[in-house]
Design a protein around this nucleic acid. Structure first.
Lengths: 224, 224
DNA sequence: AGTCACATGAATATCCTCCTGATAGAAGAT
DNA sequence: ATCTTCTATCAGGAGGATATTCATGTGACT
């Protein structure tokens, strides 16, 4: 799960970052509003944790911007301000939750889980998502992500990748790949599969540990 | 909006009930767990506000029961217990939010709104108004707006656009477009779809990032 | 009839994808 | 260690897909 943490106070961000990572979350840190905005608009996050007081942009304004841009990413505000007015203000601007510092770390984890659970209820039903390690394929949108970055693939590359993800952790012989991705049922001495595997490894920066070569047989995509 | 309030302390329930009603909510009160369970399982609620300490059933157990029964109704727990353990316990059992008494009424309203907003994101599609980014279609008036400017479309163009907006963020194969917009069920080697996509892009000034071409498949209208 | 808007198929240019075949390099066999 | 087999990668041409424009057909309305 990918979390964007927006926090300028290094003591706090160190603490939160470490704690989240220990709990198995994949966290990216932004320490200012401008940088955060870039990351929000260019990538897909499961959830955003945002300090309300940032050096350059007001957190509430940032939330409004995100919602204005039709981004529905879940947002939890973190703030030293415990005043009801501040809470109301943040929640009404589009944030989903508001947590007053200092907070207990366990509570943060539980609130993250609660919110993500609620969000996924809406989305996962409707979208067809395939995963394998860092790789995410959204077949509805025909979209491929590696570490939250969109990768452009040609139709054939896409079809091959999808086939490998659908059969992750299984060795796929060349013949079977040719059969399923190219529709070729006979052995015609081609090396297209090798070539396209190479394309994928390049475009997606896949190590040979992730997209393994099984010598004499074919290939296998490993789920970390 | 229909709210189920589960609270046995009459002083508090009076206060909350009155406040919610003044804010235009439609509220039903249950003052014990057994009665509440009946209402939860037999009716549809937009949101449930639940005291954690009830005379007959533990609130957390009630939440677990609701979730076990595959009811995804949003739940906010209200409790005098401010202990992190209690919060974690409640949230992890399936509650969406946790508010410690005494709370400010405005905060409760904001949290209710935030949660309902999050829950309804994908459900409340207004019948006559369709949106996608800058594009707004009012089917009652048969009117198309881009950035608040009216666009004149021919019947076929309109039908195609509406279909794409209704299926925004999903790749629509040419065959499916032909089927739904033209009523053609067989492949008759036509390029009308391409031509009309071109018309739309021109008339509406759509970038190829908004109305995307999915090479080898079809087209997709992207939100935001 | 004539005009107009619309729908459609065809034509063209452009761009991108796909595949082949060659070569270099890695892995495995003896 | 050497040879053989298998794999990785590259470059470039052929082919295919798409965008756009044009010409024709069709039906409604005047």
């Amino acid at each position: 799960m990918n979390i964007l943490l927006i926090e300028d106070d290094k003591r706090i961000s160190d603490f939160v970052l470490k704690g989240l990572q220990e709990n198995g979350f994949n966290v990216h840190l932004s320490d200012n509003g401008v940088n955060a905005r870039e990351h929000i608009l260019s990538s897909e996050w499961d959830i955003i944790l945002m300090d309300i007081m940032l050096p350059d942009i007001d957190g509430v304004e940032l939330v409004k911007l995100i919602r204005y841009k039709k981004k529905n990413t879940p947002i939890i505000m973190l703030s030293a301000l415990g005043d009801p007015e501040d809470k109301v203000n943040a929640l009404d601007s589009g944030a989903d939750d508001y947590l007053v510092k200092p907070f207990h770390f366990k509570e943060l984890i539980s609130r993250i889980n609660a919110l993500v659970r609620r969000t996924k209820l809406n989305y996962d039903k409707e979208q067809n998502i395939h995963q394998c390690g860092d790789i995410t394929i959204n077949t509805d949108e025909h979209k491929v992500l590696v570490n939250n970055k969109t990768i452009d693939l040609s139709p054939r590359e896409y079809k091959l990748l999808l086939f490998l993800v659908e059969n992750k952790n299984k060795v796929m012989p060349r013949t079977q790949i040719l059969n399923n991705v190219w529709g070729i049922n006979y052995d015609n001495n081609t090396n297209v599969v090798d070539v396209y595997i190479s394309y994928l490894r390049n475009k997606m920066n896949l190590t040979s540990a992730t997209l393994q070569t099984i010598v004499g047989t074919g290939y296998m995509l490993k789920d970390s």
